[in-house]
Amino acid sequence: MENKAIKVENLTFRYPDAESDTLKNISFELDYGEVLGIIGPNGAGKTTLAMALKGLIPHTVDGEIQGKIIVDGKDVLKHDISEQVLNSGLVFQDPEGQLSQMSVEEEVAFGLGNIGVPRAEMVKRIEKALQTVGLAGFEKRSPLALSGGQQQRLAIASVMAMEPSIMMMDEPTTMLDPVGKNEVFKVLKSLKEKGMTGVIIEHEIERLTMYCDKILVLHEGESILFGTPKEIFSDLMLLKKFKLRGPQVTEVAYEVFNDKEQIPVVLDEAVQSFSKELKA
């Protein structure tokens, strides 16, 4: 078996008492070092998929699950979540709801303590994690006294310190203001540069395309598209049919460029290709 970070095969899930499946026959693969973005309308099953990848489904949430999920070489369905903390970590949407400790450093230490990381090692990891998310110097503060963006960065640091192979984030910026969003995206960028393997669910499509190698489009539990951002957005009409949109620059380019293969997905690229077109 080749070494894949995530391998999902024919994943189907139904909540108890639900009339239909929330996830329908989903399959995809992700390599190490790649970041996957999951997009789709509300109710498409994005969060459910993230919970399944993390193993919260089926280990803490009941339901009928079929198919196979291998994350970092481990069969998620067969191992309890506590056995998977080194394989994957999940950052949730609500920043404050993830914080339970009395100070910033203890928040990061909490997960480490649970898995029995020795104290000396703990101190080192806390320092490194807080450094990465730009919260060095905040060690003694109460997590409740932080801004939303700082809280979310703390949540990321707490997951990161446990050093999971794969980072998963479920709409980490949705509840933040523009400043908070920028702060979190900056952290994501530096993680990406360090070769993070990750899964990010995000509404803000303009930002998402800057950090993703692959995008998975969900609609009513089905995976309708999977590929690189370029591949996904070259078929904008299909996305529109599912009430989704592309980045603004992509939407403009899609309308005015003849060569659909060449449409830009991020701003810098767009400025270049538009300049080129206008010069011609």
């Binding site: 303009e206 980045p247 603004q248 620059v249 403009v252 701003l267 767009a270 400025v271 300049s275 206008l278």
Partner: peptide
Amino acid sequence: ASLEPPQVMTLAEQL
């Protein structure tokens, strides 16, 4: 004010 205009506006400005 820590605000960012819509992406298309930034694109237009650079063009």
